[in-house]
């Protein structure tokens, strides 16, 4: 039951001999599996930029988007909280210049507001096959390593337990005036990440980091899919 749209994107990347999908492609794969991602447009020229501004609105995040570029923050390829068309055009020029000729474009996406960042992911274990990860996201992923794993396919029970297993589990509760996270959505997302791993043997790793809680709703803000 491979999703056809996702299969097309992955096949294309494999045919081009690529080891990763671009963020834009990765999110299309995720969206094809019903995983909520940021509303976004990939702009390669000024006409597309204008269209994007109309479609996404402000505030806006703009990122250099190419399968070949990692560490976008360090290279100055991410501009956040863009509030006017003038700012957007300036950012567009700077990002394209910073991409130093890499194939790609500028990803324009809605800016998700939320103070709680989660991580979801997938890794292919040599013995157990695709395993799904859940944990604290953003900078805390590497600092606290507060994560839990389950082998795909996940049952609802597994996904719920993963959320209860991390030390920072209270981040999902109603805390400091923030709403409790929509656990059902999180469960569905984790199950879907596992399903992608089962459907595509060519996917070695997936990183959804951060997944930001916008109010109670989780949204994938950045995504990486690593191929075989």
């Amino acid at each position: 039951m491979k999703n056809e749209k996702a299969a097309k994107i992955i096949d294309k990347a494999l045919k081009q001999g690529r080891k990763t999908l671009s963020e834009y492609e990765a999110k299309q794969v995720l969206a094809a599996y019903g995983i909520p991602v940021t509303k976004e447009v990939l702009a390669r020229d000024k006409t597309a930029l204008e269209k994007g501004l109309k479609k996404i609105g402000f505030p806006l995040v703009m990122k250099g988007c190419s399968a070949d570029i990692a560490h976008k923050t360090e290279k100055g390829l991410i501009h956040v909280d863009i509030r006017t068309a003038t700012e957007a055009k300036k950012a567009f020029r700077e990002i394209l210049a910073g991409m130093e000729g890499y194939e790609g474009g500028v990803l324009m996406q809605e800016m998700i507001k939320g103070r709680r960042e989660l991580v979801m992911g997938l890794t292919r274990d040599p013995q157990f096959g695709p395993c799904v990860m859940f944990g604290l996201g953003g900078i805390f992923t590497e600092i606290l390593r507060d994560v839990a794993f389950r082998r795909a396919p996940l049952e609802i029970r597994d996904a719920k337990e993963m959320m209860q297993e991390i030390k920072g589990r209270k981040i999902l509760d109603a805390v400091r005036g923030m709403e409790a996270a929509d656990q059902k959505m999180l469960v569905d997302m984790l199950i879907s990440v596992g399903r992608i791993g089962l459907d595509f043997d060519d996917i070695m790793e997936i990183d959804l980091n951060p997944v930001i809680l916008s109010g109670s709703k989780p949204v994938v803000v950045d995504a990486l899919i690593v191929l075989k």
Partner: peptide, 24 residues
């Protein structure tokens, strides 16, 4: 140990995977 390109890859040591599988 796993030289992953992603956070997930680098966090998925055998200890973590076995922990998850056992619980599962």
């Amino acid at each position: 140990k796993h030289a992953g390109r992603s956070h997930t890859g680098s966090l998925s040591g055998p200890n973590e995977i076995y922990d998850g599988v056992f619980r599962q």
